[in-house]
Design a protein around this nucleic acid. Structure first.
Length: 442
RNA sequence: GGAGACGUGCCAGAGUGGUUGAAUGGGCCGCACUCGAAAUGCGGUAUGCCCGAAAGGGCAUCGGAGGUUCGAAUCCUCCCGUCUCCGCCA
């Protein structure tokens, strides 16, 4: 959620920001109206309670009884007001950062660069599903029998490739030397902390899911187990973020970087008819996700680091890709800025080839951390950043960022299509050969 | 799933209905003493919200949500979490 102070102080700015996200600016006025009412009731209730406290201290029991009934009805009103005020606050999305291009929808996303060489094949290029089925790596037909549409069995070398990719990503990101190198290459001035590997729970409580900001809009996308009141995560971000709920970080413990592996579950409710074949868009897939807890001042650089690492992983795998800066209208609720990576899939669109999304990295600034109540201890010495000699340092919230390391299903697809040979076999990318003792899948 | 114990401030740990936001100790911060340090002494040390230009004032918070009462950290109910034992299980 946004800072209430900010909405009160600069409503016009907030309106502009959310309008750029295609969200009705009227939400701001709605909130302010409810907020005003809530403040009035708060005042009344507080005053009544003050009165009661005095009376009861003086043992004026009869008078106190009268005040007590007043308080009861005031509190009922207040609770109602509070509920609607909170709801109104929570549906206001995060504001885009100033550098984010303004645009209505994905057509205004900006291609920043294209990297890598698209494979030139002197033979008819096949699509991953054809290749995968012929080599018995992917079986969606039997999956449909067992689980329905949008599921798949990965078989034979495919699971081995999956674990090779996971192992590779863990190795790469937990090695501080690699991080240092990427930071240097991109001229960033942030600490070269390595990533901490995490295997998180994939079932999480409603509070946790809601705090991450995906329930208000887009709740349809999420699986919910009614009987147990638990959500299935759509990305491990939703499980890793709440790990630090109600915690306060020392500045010296930041940045905190995590690399998490988890299965991800998505209902794909709004995508009937889209990508129905194969395993490009499925209800269940495994993903390695980077997650960063950052000091507010460094989050933009951390975001650049996440993007740089995503690119690095793609480069080392020698997969051609392009980088998109996502425009304001295509940002999700919690995101203030976002980049996507799309891999080149030469077998798509009838062998014409197509870019398809494999990575996404967002800076959610303090939008998630405010709701998760993850704070940063104001630095005692000199108040380096917060400035001023105010003895009361305002609480700072950390910034939270996330970025895909590998969405494994889609990377498998990319490997199949980009590493296919004339014979219909698949070469194993060089970096993976130390994790899978194979040069070629045939 | 069954039985029991517990859940208080940064930490340890008192407190079983009435100025208790909370003893005491530790930690931390400031000051004094010192050339400096240790030790010692004195003082300070929660958060959120509301009103206020500020000074300041008010309200709430002792795992969470309700309830009893003029008044609850203290009594009652439910929930959550931790630990121990049993059952089950990979």
């Amino acid at each position: 959620m946004l800072d209430v102070e900010l909405i009160r102080r600069e409503p016009e700015k907030v309106k502009r920001g959310i309008a750029n996200k295609n969200v009705d600016p009227k939400l701001v006025d709605d909130f302010l109206t409810l907020d005003k009412k809530w403040r009035e009731l708060t005042k009344q209730a507080d005053e009544a309670r003050a009165k009661l406290n005095i009376l009861s201290r003086e043992r004026k029991i009869d008078e106190a009884k009268v005040v007590k009934t007043q308080i009861k009805s005031l509190e009922e009103e207040l609770t109602k007001a509070e509920v609607s005020r909170d709801a109104a606050l929570k549906i206001i999305p995060n504001l885009p950062l100033p550098e984010v291009p303004v645009g209505k929808n994905e057509t205004s996303n900006v291609v920043i660069r294209e990297v890598g060489r698209k494979p030139k094949c002197d033979f008819p290029v096949k699509d991953y599903l054809e290749l995968g089925q012929k080599l018995d790596l992917i079986d969606t037909e039997r999956a449909a029998k067992v689980s329905g549409s949008r599921f798949g069995y990965l078989k034979r070398e495919a699971p081995l490739l999956e674990f090779a990719l996971a192992q590779f990503a863990f190795d790469f990101l937990t090695n501080q030397k690699n991080i240092t190198k990427v930071i240097k290459e991109n001229k960033l001035s942030i600490t070269p902390e390595a990533f901490i590997p995490v295997l998180p729970p994939v079932l999480i409580k409603p509070e946790a899911m809601s705090a991450m900001g995906y329930v208000e809009r887009g709740g349809e996308e999420i699986y919910f187990l009614e009987k147990d009141q638990l959500y299935l995560v759509g990305t491990s971000e939703q499980s890793v973020g709440p790990m630090h709920m109600n915690e306060t970080f020392d500045e010296k413990d930041l940045p905190r970087r995590y690399i998490a592996f988890s299965t991800c579950f998505r209902r794909e409710a709004g995508s009937y008819g889209k990508d129905t074949k194969g395993i490009l868009r499925v209800h269940q897939f495994d993903k390695l996700e980077m997650f960063v807890v950052s000091a507010p001042e460094t989050s933009t650089e951390e975001h650049k680091l996440l993007l740089a690492l995503e690119e690095k992983l793609m480069q080392v795998l020698e997969l051609p890709y392009r980088v998109l800066q996502i425009c304001s209208g295509d940002l999700g609720d919690p995101a203030a800025a976002k980049y996507d990576i799309e891999v080149w899939l030469p077998g798509q669109d009838g062998s014409k080839g197509q870019y398809r999304e494999t990575h996404s990295t967002s800076n959610t600034t303090d939008y998630q951390s405010r709701r998760l109540n993850i704070k940063l201890k104001p630095s005692a010495e000199g108040g380096s950043a917060s400035g001023g000699k105010n003895s009361k340092l305002k609480p700072q919230y950390v910034h939270l960022l996330n970025g895909t390391a590998f969405a494994i299903g889609r990377i498998l697809i990319a490997i199949l299509e980009n590493y296919q040979t004339k014979k219909g076999s698949i070469k194993v990318p060089k970096v993976l050969r130390r994790y899978i003792k194979l040069k070629e899948i045939k």
